[in-house]
Design a protein around this nucleic acid. Sequence first.
DNA 1: TTCCGACAGTGGGGTCGCAAT
DNA 2: ATTGCGACCCCACTATCGGAA
Length: 517
Amino acid sequence: MHHDCMLLTRLADVSREVAATSARSRKIALLAELFRFAEPDDVPIVIPYLAGRLPQGRLGIGWKVLGRRVDPAAEPTLTVREVDARLTAIGKVTGTGSQAERARLVGELMGAATEGEQRFLIGLITGEVRQGALDALAVEGLAQATGAAGPDVRRAVMLAGSLQTVAQALLADGPQALDRFRLTVGRPVLPMLAHTASSVTEAVEKLGACAVEEKLDGIRVQVHRDGDDVRLYTRTLDDITDRLPELTSAALRLRGERFVLDGEVIAFDERGRPRSFQETAGRVGSRVDVATAARAVPVSPVFFDALSVDGRDLLDLPFAERHAELARLVPEPMRVRRTVVSGPDDVPAAETFLAETLERGHEGVVVKALDAPYSAGRRGAAWLKVKPVHTLDLVVLAAEWGHGRRTGKLSNLHLGARTADGGFAMLGKTFKGMTDAILAWQTERLQELAVESDGYVVTVRPELVVEIAYDGLQKSTRYPAGVALRFARVLRYREDKRPEEADTVETLLAAHPEVRP
DNA sequence: TTCCGACAGTGGGGTCGCAAT
DNA sequence: ATTGCGACCCCACTATCGGAA
């Protein structure tokens, strides 16, 4: 096999080909072919580039700079490592005059790139690669290129918490390198995620014997303890140890010496009721003056799973056994409240538990199959969340032109409720829940109602009523009513309703007494 | 042949913290 | 001091491919 540092042009060509095919099998084959030519050292750059990410994050370069035309190079000479080095240098430019200096360096880079390479670089820097292949297909391609089994590679990635690390090891040492990736205390694992079910009945019928657990509206946290050393990680594996000292103390008070636990961190008020998500998230996001933030908004851990205890990897054990380990280690007040049901005959008990959970101020429940292993990094069907859904009839005030596959379609709706003075107050936006048919229909209809456009937002006469589902209200400084919808999505248009029949701000606020704008 | 799980894509609001104005 | 912006938090939903049933 021939190896030398990979040329950018090769990457740009593959990216274009991958984008041009819709068949996943073909995308995977193209990626595999590319990886066969990659040196291990290229991998930490090639993998994120293919997913349309820059390893160094954003660079402070916008369309203004990238829009300037630079004469392309005639011959492709740039290597991916050279591009990476130049982009790193651009990201490091700070201080007065930094924007001009960055623009100059970008111009230099573009001048060294051919036409095709320029297009790829612009897409990469603006985050518009969109080739229909992210990490999941890269995993398959990597497996094909190295002769490893797909599920083995995927498992290694979940345990390593990083595709780059696994790819580098695989290309350097072949399939046996995968054995090195085991659950290790101190190294975070991608957390298991849940699907949605519309009711407790549906969830229990799907899963059979299961645990029904409170769903807390906080921040997911993975707690690693090795003796006196405690580390805390978020859902995306960011290390947040320094921000939550009370969680470290809590972990040190537990009986075990070495463990990995999965749970939620949340702030409770004096009466033990959950504070709003905004308050918990603000606390977890505070990094500078942690002591002050901790006094104002103390948080608590609430654990629901054990991934490793005393050097034993529990990932493949059934949930019932993992939970037994958790219960040995963690006292009840620090575990999530739950009930166990035997199956569909037990649905009433599950319904009662959901009602009590909502009464206590939580957002819903998660129903978990008792026999399921911990599927790290997967949205396994073994966990199903159930949350109550609210609906409203709102009026479309404006719409924004879509991007990507929604180019040329009016996509993002501005939603308003009626006010006392006969006008409308905007409560938020949504682009969710639309089928292609709805998208096409609303593009036509809204253009008929258009009164103004700035090329991006099309303002319309407030005549179209749309039924919206949402998860709740939150305080807002952005919108005139002082509140915004959380997770709004379209259910259907109500052509049978006139705007005078839409819901009012007043009734909305009355329905959510817990939120005072 | 039909069904369904997994992926990618399309963005939503809020908060924090840094850099530019 | 204020404003703009990116990075993270939380998140729902549809279209599509391709293997399972």
